[in-house]
Design a protein around this nucleic acid. Sequence first.
RNA 1: GCGCCUGUAGCUCAACUGGAUAGAGCACCAGACUUCGGAUCUGGGGGUUAAGGGUUCAAAUCCUUUCAGGCGCGCCA
Length: 583
Amino acid sequence: MTNLIQHFKKNFFKYHSDFQKKYQFNDKINFNQINFDIPNNLSHGHISTNALFIYLKSSTMEKTEIIKFFTKKLQSSSNVEKVEIAGQGFINIFFKKNYLISELININKMGDNIGKSNIGKNKKINIEFISANPTGPLHLAHSRGAIFGDVLSNILEKVGYEVTREYYINDAGVQIEKLGDSLYVRYCQLINQNEIDINEMNYPGDYLINIAKLILQNDKKKWLNVNTSKRKKYFENFAIKHILKIIKKDCKNMGIKFDLFVSEKKIIKEGIINSVFKKLKKDSLLYEGVLEKPKSINDPDWEPRKQLLFKSTKFGDDADRPFLKSNNDWTYFANDSAYHYYKIKRKYNKIINIWGADHIGYIKRMKSIVKVMSDDKIDFLIKICQLVNLKKDNKPIKMSKRSGNYISIDEIIKEVGSDVLRFFMLYRKNDTQIDFDLSKVLEKTKDNPIFYIQYAFARSNSVLNNANKIFKKINYKNIYNLENHIQYISDYEWKIINKILIWPNIIENAASNYEPHKIIYYLEDLSSMFHIFWNKGNENKDLRFIDENNYDKTLSRLYWINSFQLILKSAFDIIGIKPIKKM
RNA sequence: GCGCCUGUAGCUCAACUGGAUAGAGCACCAGACUUCGGAUCUGGGGGUUAAGGGUUCAAAUCCUUUCAGGCGCGCCA
């Protein structure tokens, strides 16, 4: 067992049954209300619980009697050093040093498996992220959702879930037609057929030129004389195919791999929408109606129109949502409903969507439709990633949509590297905005968190190397005499060891709240503690990692450095960046 | 106008989802380099958690009202 809380919880509930037997306690206790926390302040113990509050609330028993019972029970555990009742009624538990060290030994034994757990065992999760339209390369805003989704998947896998990473390709609709047209303009441009107005292009980015060149290479001027509908179809498909290639390459450069790409076209072709339509009809959730004019529209030509609407107001949405366009095509929302029904049918325990902030208004209708189509049986979560502001030297970099002049992921990775990009996209909670400063993120000072953490790893590595030289292959992965080593561990090191031991809880916490940033903040804390202890060694020779005259003392320090490194490596692996041994 | 998100130290953000004295980093002031890698560290000041009201043993966190900012709001995706 290497999860302090889990371990403790088990014992505690054993005591609870004893308690019940002895006092014939009329049990109305809501166990979900009993927390087992890791206090910020070590003076509040290694673990603390609010259980006493909960017991007091649901019983007429004397406080002192309850306290007496539990302190006695808790203290009888061989792991527990002391139990304190503090504050208005917290039970604080302090563990014995032997126990802490034995947990450290467990961590070192687990090696690469450190942090794994089985809370997601036999459960399947589907995570859909990026799903950017295949109309151009990915840009910075996409990368946040991309990296967030990827790392969240890693975390969920770590705690035992079976995760499907999915990308929905919006390869149907008006935008795709416009894309095909833009590609045709580029094609004509290449062969000096200038009768088409370049300013009319919807997708003016340079990437279409290269794709047009490919068509020219293969087919020469053939498409100038082909009938329009056949030509349109060809250019659309050609564009999608090659842009998808670019997107996949962007993903690969960020270290992201998908398990599944699902095409909107395919969803339409398979007619999944018909099942959705039937179901909604049956439940009387579709009707012909007229929507009010939305406040955002200032168009004087706006006219009310009768159309097929989905009754999403029934589920708390602000307005009912159109299902059919006036040309009798399904709306994007209708097709998306079909796509989500397709996900539901694949029987996941949970479906997660990662969206950009510009899709906030879409949440309610999507939740409504998923609720209906799954008979309220699927656990459906939408995580929103806020905007990313690109800067350089603290000045915003303007990006123009009109010229298609976005700074691409490709360029950013070339400038700062994928590790730095990944790190900073996770450095903030998903619902706050990020300032991404191309010059700041590369600074080699402690102000730069990724550097600071990498530097701690490099330093720790340097210690191990030096120790190896001095003691000729010291085996810091094993401890042979527990009691012997405990005497050498200083107060501050116990703090570090305690921090090391809560790593499994950090992962679980990040997983159960779907918040990857918790891992980053933990890493920053842990690294800081390492740097602090290092500096203590500069001030006080007794606190140096290596004591040439004392093998055992050195070993006692190298032993926790080994766990320190295991955690950093494991965390880096989850975040998707590489540890640097020497810098 | 409506919906969602946000509001925490001068700035950028945490806070184990209702827990104890609200924590870090920048910036500011004062210190430590014959160093296991000073690319670091030590100390200090700085807060009515936007404002009011409520819920309870306990509120930055939940409910409510107000204020401010962001995003979104019919046949784009």
